[in-house]
Design a protein around this nucleic acid. Structure first.
Length: 328
DNA sequence: AAAACAAGCAACCGCGGACCT
DNA sequence: TAGGTCCGCGGTTGCTTGTTT
């Protein structure tokens, strides 16, 4: 048994709105409000439109003080930082940008911001590879040939260095110890985010969602223990076992450039960046009530790999692509 | 000049959750 | 508590416009 349709599909008009329809809808809502019932609204006005369509038209286009296009640098920063932190929660992101709609931001991200970010990331990757080759010199030309060959099989925009899987065990896990604390701290905040926004966390940013969906555990000593997935990320692997930190590391350089010095206070987002009551409740001692990008970034791109030359690794571009919401 | 392709954007769709009875 | 209805969200589609060949 399916869900009942919200309107009579056969008798509703679809497609672009005419100026007359806009005028009807606008004048009615300005005079009477929505009446709390979008479904009944079109009938009252005499519009042959679905109620959902009316709602969308009003919210995204007719509503007063709507801004279209012309996103500022500051808005870019907010969108990017929130996307990395909470994923594609466009309505939450839109709430931080007065006059912007979730649809607008979503379109802007998909058409411009994502490409802008990926473009810079690709540029950086090329630079990193140049440095890598310079450091390696010609002593290991065989490996470089292998790398080039493998790159050819990858998405052209994601040329990733590779190693054989038996090299995974050589990763220096100790290098992650120093960030463990800050990661844990961020996870506490993700836990708060999950508390605030549980429901659609399986979509969007897989990092925030997979971690944020889980409550942190305490061992018998009262110390916080991380979920298995979290430790996987910390050690530089996705839960599915793919190496992820390299790609994240590189894109994070770009994000860092964008966000350093940007101390915009995100309205109403304490639950994402450090809620005082949550900290108290979990007995977590924090030097500040909120997290800044520098605290968040180690989790987004754990600095597991500090020696690029000695740490060629297998990356799965899809992991990174997923986080950026890219669809190659 | 025209066709092909790409980018941008408005609108649609289906799902999950909130609310009401 | 269960079932029905509506709202709001995010993903997707398809039309329009601009650019390239």
């Amino acid at each position: 048994m399916g869900r009942a349709p919200c309107c009579d599909k056969a008798n509703v008009k679809k497609g672009p709105w005419s100026p007359e329809e806009d005028a009807k809808l606008r004048s009615y809502i300005e005079q009477h409000g929505t009446g709390g019932n979008w479904i009944a609204l079109p009938q009252k006005i005499g519009l042959k439109r679905c109620g959902k369509s009316c709602r969308l038209r009003w919210l995204n286009y007719l509503r007063p003080n709507i801004k279209h296009g012309g996103f500022s640098e500051e808005e870019d920063n907010i969108i990017c930082s929130l996307y990395v932190a909470i994923g594609s929660r466009w309505s939450i992101i839109a709430a931080q940008l007065p006059g912007r709609t979730d649809n607008d931001i979503k379109n802007y991200w998909n058409t411009k911001l994502k490409k802008k970010l990926l473009g810079k990331q690709h540029k950086n990757q090329q630079q990193a590879r140049r440095v890598c080759r310079r450091n390696q010199g010609t002593k290991d030309s065989k490996d470089s040939n292998t790398m080039s060959a493998k790159e050819g099989n990858h998405h052209s925009s994601w040329p990733m260095p590779t190693i054989s899987t038996n090299q995974f065990n050589q990763v220096d896990h100790h290098a992650s110890d120093d960030v463990h604390e800050s990661i844990t701290k961020f996870l506490m905040n993700l836990d708060g985010a999950a508390f605030c926004c549980r429901g659609r966390a399986e979509q969007g940013n897989p990092l925030a969602s997979s971690l944020g969906q889980q409550h942190l555990n305490r061992n018998s000593m009262g110390s916080i223990t991380l979920p298995e997935q979290a430790n996987s990320f910390i050690n530089g692997y996705s839960p599915s076992g793919y190496r992820i930190s390299q790609g994240l590391n590189e894109i994070a350089v770009e994000l860092d450039e964008m966000f350093l010095g940007n101390s915009v206070k995100l309205r109403g987002l304490d639950c994402f960046f450090g809620a005082g009551n949550m900290v108290a409740e979990n007995n977590w001692t924090s030097t500040s009530g909120s997290m800044n990008w520098n605290e968040i970034s180690p989790l987004i791109y754990p600095p597991v790999v500090t020696n690029y030359q000695g740490m060629q690794q297998q990356c799965l571009p899809d992991e990174l692509v997923h986080i950026l919401g890219a669809q190659i």
